[in-house]
Simulated scan of single mutants.
Amino acid sequence: MSEADPSSVPVLVEVRRGAVVESRHRGAIAVATATGRTVAAVGDPDWICFLRSAAKPFQAIAVIRTGALERFTITDQELAIITASHNGEPEHVTTVAGLLDRLGLTPAMLRCGIHPPFNQAAARRLEGTPPTVLHNNCSGKHAGLLAGCLAAGFSTSDYDQSDHPLQTAIAQVIAAMCDVAATAMPAGLDGCTIPTWAVPLRAMAVGYARLFAHSPYPEESRRVAEAMLAHPELVGGTERIDTDLMRAAQGKLLSKVGAEGVHVVAVPPCDRFPEALGIAVKVEDGDSFRARNTVMLAALRQLGLLSAEAYTDLAARYSRPILTHRKQIAGGLRAVFSLASDR
């Protein structure tokens, strides 16, 4: 495993104003099957990167393994919100609150902290009322962790600590899914207070492909993937690329972003990729909007996994031109990498 050498990280996106390149975003892309075969790469596929919120499907697997879904009759909608980085829209808040109520817990048990809803309309809807912990984009995940603690008989007051047994179980799931040693995964503290782990970019891609094939936890992986694909509106929300990408792909792509320029997509087994596929993106400067979106959409299009019509529609929303304050087009973003797969 390696850290990125700044001098060798390739440019993935150019930002042009007129005919001049005004800025550049560097990073890496890794494409791999569930069996670990590298299909394509740009930059260093062994660059060690924190999963951040891209870990949520794996964290959900650990929750399922405690027996929480059966004990508390957790629905597919609630499982989807456990994997989510949601907008804090009413549907998201209501779903998390309903899960907590069934657990016999209050929002005060959530240790993720408070921030305003990601969605501007949801934030305006509060009308001066302070946001609550339920509006945190990770509140569903934290509710799921509490469900796992209750099902396994673990303590609930310190579930965010690195030595908590559920966090240990999550690390083991990530290691198994990504085919790395748990002892080789550097740990950090995520924005929502729980541990986050770093793995090579290639390993992220392998882990996501295993949501659809060759998983060490086949039943749990199936349930997570089905819930996310069935309820993409809960995984992100209005004007969120995870939601819109899964809708556009009509069940053929599973998408989950992470902070600091991380985005991972899983592709179910198909004629071209019978072993399933994972595509992992990391933007070096941490840009989680214009660059990350531009890179993933271009990668999917180059791999033939996104139709021309879907690409054009999504790029118009998530790789927007640079505008003046009078809405004149002043420039735009352009993906400048070539990602050719061995078809």
Rank of each mutant, 00 (worst) to 15 (best):
V206Q: 01
R301F: 11
S221W: 03
G258E: 01
A225N: 14
L277E: 07
R301D: 11
M228G: 12
R272Q: 10
E226S: 10
A291Y: 04
E284V: 12
L305M: 10
P218H: 09
T294K: 02
A276Y: 08
L297V: 14
M246Y: 13
G304C: 10
A298I: 04
V295T: 02
L254T: 03
R272K: 14
Y217H: 15
T238M: 08
A299N: 10
I279G: 06
G278H: 03
L229N: 07
R290V: 07
R292D: 00
F273W: 11
R240S: 02
L277Y: 04
N293S: 15
E233V: 14
R223C: 12
A213W: 00
E233S: 13
E219C: 02
P218A: 06
R222M: 08
V283R: 01
S215Q: 09
D285A: 10
R240D: 07
G286Q: 00
D285E: 12
A298N: 08
A291V: 12
S215A: 13
L229E: 04
L234C: 14
V262K: 02
A248L: 05
A213S: 09
S255A: 15
L234S: 03
V283C: 08
E239F: 15
P268W: 01
R301M: 02
E260W: 10
G207V: 12
L305R: 06
A266C: 11
A280H: 01
V295A: 09
M296R: 07
P274F: 06
Q250L: 13
